[in-house]
Amino acid sequence: MKKIKLPLTDEQISTLKAGDSVLLSGTMITGRDAAHKRLFELIEKGEALPVDIKGETIYYVGPAPAKPGYAVGPAGPTSSYRMDKYAPALLDLGLKGMVGKGARSPEVIEAIVRNHAVYFAAIGGAAALLAKSIKKTEPICYEDLGTESVRRYYVEDFPCIVAVDSEGGNVYETEPKKFNKE
């Protein structure tokens, strides 16, 4: 299992291959449907974003509330395809990593390759387990969105799999084929 430090470096991204199991440590930002919509609208208008996404890794998550004594509530990935409309614009602005679940569109994969970025898959529905790797969170913006607000997560050994690598290798294309017996 490869240990990867966040924020990602270009050299690190080059070593990551689709299918690699990795443990992420460091910081990432969060954002899902509603936050992406707002960021995308600002980009379209040519306005500044309330969060600097250059070099960042974004986790598509909307956690459950934290019980007292917990840093965060259960926090598993949400389906990434809903962010496909917005992701290429964010990648073109310097976003380097995405963490979510499920397949991406050809446009997103092209943008990953074009920008030397990477897409990680975390296990959907493993929210209680994944929350153990999130040590601290703090607000960044869009607090009115509640669970959909943009926050900074401090993670240690957060488990995921390289789903799409910087050369366009894509586990969702290659792996199911190996087991298809139809």
Binding site: K101, A121, T174, E175, P176, K178, F179, K181, E182
Partner: peptide, 12 residues
């Protein structure tokens, strides 16, 4: 038989 498997990462 489709092959998607657990988490869609391949399997039966």
């Amino acid at each position: 038989l489709m092959g998607f498997g657990p988490a869609g990462l391949g399997g039966n």
